[in-house]
Simulated scan of single mutants.
Amino acid sequence: MTVTKNPLGAPPTDRPSAPELEVVPVRNYGRWCAAAASVLALVGLIGSLARNDNLRWDVVGDYLFADLIFDGLGTTLWLTAAAMALGLGLGTLIAVMRLSSSPVLYGIATFFVWVFRGTPLLVQIIFWGYAAALYQYVKIGIPFTEVTFFQTETNSLLTPAIAALLALGLNEAAYASEIVRAGIQSVDSGQAEAAHSLGMRPALTMRRIVLPQAMRVIIPPMGNETINMLKMTALVSVISAHDLMSNIQDVYAQNYQVIPMLVVASIWYLALVTLLSIPQAWLERRYGRGTARGRQVSPLRRMLGGAAGSVVKKDKENAR
């Protein structure tokens, strides 16, 4: 009978230990070549633009911080904030109506989305800007009677700024409703059923249970809609709403410096979009906590390299 010192099922201890292997990362020479070619092309483009006398950088510098530009920026920011507030509030209501079991509410909401999503935004802006050609007066009263409680001229009520707000806000509501509806439908139905079993009313369940969980799906596309709204305000220049693009057009219509003035507009739009991207990224990380999206590193830290790489490495080790 042979007596062994190792426990039953344990591997033998007399085997030689395996040598430690050194992990060598794969060198992606193609990636380095592509990065070098991209940087060279970008530097060449920037250098070509900087040396181009047709850009008239002196004109760009004169108008970049002009009072007329700041007046247009104020209108652009006001239109963006107000249109997004109107669009998000009305879009949430329309999304709930489209999810309703009532055929009337569903039909009205579907018709609204069909009209405002199916016609170009430029057409809607022009329509609201020239609504007086359709109705000379705005009247509120009892239908099919002569009784009128309120009456005013359409041109005095629908100023270019108000017309632009209605066009942008109603158009955004159609798109926001689909984003909110997708976010609500992404939440498991068992969440609402559990809330109802606890005695919570449907409105309270939607506000306290469903919408907070749907924000993970809603925030990224809604952030893109906000940035897109900022740029779409340039279309209201067709009705002279005195936004940034309207004032830019007024200037180059007088001095004929089209390209320099467009460069001024592009610089300010790029600056505003960059500022809007910061709270969007913060909201995505906040509402994505507990998911892979919440552990994502910001683009700035990824570009910096070292610090971001260590964070990603720690996240991967914790995931294992």
Rank of each mutant, 00 (worst) to 15 (best):
L8Y: 13
V26A: 14
R27P: 01
W32D: 13
A34P: 10
S38A: 15
G44E: 04
I46P: 06
N52H: 02
D53E: 15
N54D: 15
R56H: 14
R56D: 15
D67W: 04
F70Q: 09
L77P: 08
L77Y: 04
G87V: 09
M97R: 05
S100C: 06
S101R: 12
Y106T: 08
A109K: 03
T110Q: 05
F111S: 15
W114A: 12
V115F: 14
F127Y: 10
W128Q: 07
A133G: 12
Q136L: 06
Y137M: 11
G141Q: 00
I142D: 06
T145Q: 08
E146M: 04
V147Y: 07
F150D: 00
S156Q: 11
I162A: 12
A163W: 00
L166G: 03
L170N: 02
E172Q: 13
E178L: 03
E178F: 01
I179Q: 07
A182R: 00
I184R: 03
Q185C: 05
A194Y: 12
L198M: 15
G199R: 08
A203C: 09
T205K: 06
L211A: 08
Q213V: 12
V217D: 14
V217Q: 12
I218C: 08
L230H: 02
L230A: 05
A234T: 05
L235R: 03
V238N: 02
I239C: 06
S246C: 09
N247P: 03
I248H: 04
I248W: 07
Y252W: 10
Q254S: 14
Q254K: 11
M261V: 04
L272Y: 05
V273F: 10
T274K: 02
S277G: 12
R285W: 08
A292T: 15
G294H: 06
Q296T: 08
R301W: 13
A308R: 02
D315Y: 14
D315T: 13
E317C: 00
A319R: 06
